[in-house]
Design a protein around this nucleic acid. Structure first.
Lengths: 249, 249
DNA sequence: CGGTTATTTGAGGCAACTCAAGAATCGTGG
DNA sequence: CCACGATTCTTGAGTTGCCTCAAATAACCG
């Protein structure tokens, strides 16, 4: 694949930024923000592009502005597991580490707000607000990873699929600041294969489960990238989780 | 079970503390340490005791001094997944959160260095060294959780067991500041059931795999809490991982 | 419209699970 | 120190959910 990275250097203001309230810079005050702003730069990637290969040097850190990216790990024989999902406002990279631990791929078209690693690290020591916010975000990610451990270790294929659809529905609903319920349309930003790598299944099992649910009237499949849940609460019941874990993110 | 918590309030100095170099207080300077020291208190738990139930209020945070504890998550029907393992120097609790998300259980006899949550949170804002160290530790835990995702999602039962033994052997060797190799004796601080909950298996499968490896001469079982690996590198090969991920912790 | 990729569907196999029983080990009190 | 009850662990037999291999169908793109 050609490297079509757009290295645009125009700098729209942070004030209009759609992730200003939730990104790593959320707690920064205007002077801190000014220092960040002077070093930031934007990058765009298109769906399917690999942003960083595991083991490569990491020259920048970034916030996801729009789109989605995944972190994946591979075994020598090709078995693949997705170990992280980056959505808007999520942070990419680890200050203090010079080489990437996981391969990062753009799952959909992606827009990043980047900082060169070294200057960012210096800034982090000087501005506690930045470090504090990163700590909060990392703790949230750790909690998410732990829920995921339960999913991978103990849930059935059907429960895994249902859990994922519930997760997406909640995320979609949260954008509109409402509780998910009743009939919900959600966009599937992943291929069956990526979904399988996310859930620790094969793509055939993913396909069978989705079509099984369709046959039972739990959902409709529109094209391959759109799902309509007939009843959110029914799906939640299939996920094996109790009802909480909802909006207050 | 009786609540035999030892609420000893004597305060041995931080200077003699065996986890001084790696715990959350590692980067603190003497004045910061003094403030921490004035509010700290110790608690002891015996193997099997539950320290906190998921959903209960968390009144303190703590560092593990000796022993081992586990974080577990449960589904309504009883399926259990261990989602975290706390070893000496690891941190228990999440500043800013008032109720526990996971159930914490002492897997072996356990010794904690505790701080009441509120004062600790205040201290964290005032002493960046504390927050910085917690960030480092949380990032490390996140990486560990992500390796675990690969294990749960993609590895076979045999690979899971081998991976866990390699992990323990490395941890054991790290205490003596040496690389693990050749024949190694390790203590198994877990029952078969806890091991199964850790690895996303049943206890029968764990037992079968361990005895299978014994039959093949890969290890010896001494009693039920001691394992002797015949050859570390052979075990590493069985784990499905490449050789890195070693000492530099 | 034709080639390519993504998805669905089928048939068969196996790794890990469930259920069940027996053996080893541990802890405790006599 | 031994006996005995309670755990914990091992082992066996049978089942099953998900995987593998294979092929057909559908969607996508220039």
């Amino acid at each position: 694949m050609l490297n079509l990275v757009d290295r645009t250097t125009t700098k729209p203001g942070c004030n209009d930024c759609p992730i200003r309230e939730r990104a790593v810079c959320a707690h920064c005050e205007s002077d801190e923000l000014a220092r960040l702003e002077s070093t930031k730069f934007y990058r765009k990637y298109s769906a399917g592009q690999t942003i960083i290969w595991a083991g490569e040097p990491m020259e920048f850190v970034a916030s996801v502005i729009t789109g989605m990216a995944s972190l994946t790990q591979q075994m020598e024989d090709g078995r693949t597991q997705m170990v992280g999902m980056l959505l808007p406002s999520d942070f990419l990279g680890r200050p203090g580490r010079q080489t990437a631990t996981y391969t990062v791929t753009a799952t959909s078209d992606l827009h990043l707000c980047c900082f060169h690693r070294k200057p960012f690290e210096t800034l982090m020591v000087q501005t506690p607000h930045l470090a504090m916010r990163l700590l909060e975000m990392t703790l949230d990610e750790l909690d998410a990873a732990r829920d995921w451990l339960l999913l991978l270790g103990r849930k059935t294929a059907r429960e895994k699929i249902a859990s994922f659809l519930v997760f997406l529905a909640r995320r979609e609903a949260a954008l509109g600041k409402r509780q998910p319920q009743g009939q919900i349309t959600i966009g599937l930003p992943l291929t069956r294969e990526a979904l399988a790598d996310y859930l620790g299944l094969t793509l055939e099992t993913v396909s069978r489960q989705l079509n099984g649910m369709k046959r039972e009237g739990m959902l409709q499949l529109e094209g391959k990238r759109r799902v309509i849940l007939s009843d959110f609460d029914m799906m939640l019941a299939e996920s094996g989780d109790d009802g909480d874990g909802g909006l207050p993110i």
